[in-house]
């Protein structure tokens, strides 16, 4: 059975892929969210600073404009436990920068290049993500 969420997932995924293809073929850069944000906050973006800042502006503002235009009310359904939010944010930011990529850089851009690093990174974060949900949801029951 095909759920509507699968169709939205596929369409949204194709748009993400087109965005990454445009960034690569246009500006010659890998569209990795953690690299772009990390480069801006730690200063390693260098000459790319302006373009990456503009990329982030588009990333924040376009969803907002779409929501306003179509009167949508999307929910992130994120936990309201501040301890979990802070712990997760620290792990995500630190891990992605140490690994030099996250779901967009290693996942989308790495796998599509058949890069062994992208494929290995994706397998590792999918594994620990699964263990994390198992541990915190089913064993400890905190999420």
């Amino acid at each position: 059975m095909i759920e509507t969420s699968y169709i939205y997932g596929l369409i949204g995924g194709l748009i993400i892929g087109i965005a990454a293809a445009l960034y690569l073929l246009g500006n010659g850069r890998v569209m990795g969210a953690s690299g772009i944000i990390g480069g801006l906050v730690d200063g390693s973006a260098g000459h790319d600073r302006r373009d990456q800042f503009i990329f982030v502006l588009g990333l924040i503002l376009v969803p907002w404009l779409v929501i306003l235009s179509f009167d949508l009310a999307p929910k992130t359904n994120i936990t309201s436990n501040p301890v979990i939010i802070v712990a997760a944010g620290l792990l995500v930011g630190f891990g992605a920068r140490v690994a030099n990529g996250c779901t967009s850089g290693h996942g989308v851009c790495g796998i599509s290049r058949l890069s062994p690093r992208g494929i290995v990174a994706t397998l590792f974060y999918l594994f620990s993500g699964g263990v994390s949900v198992l541990l915190f949801k089913h064993i400890l029951g905190v999420i």
């Binding site: 995500v92 891990g95 690994a99 990174a121 974060y125 263990v131 994390s132 949900v133």
Partner: peptide
């Protein structure tokens, strides 16, 4: 790094 990232992503 990927293991740490994934743990936070799941959390």
């Amino acid at each position: 790094g990927s293991l740490i990232f994934g743990a936070g992503w799941g959390l």
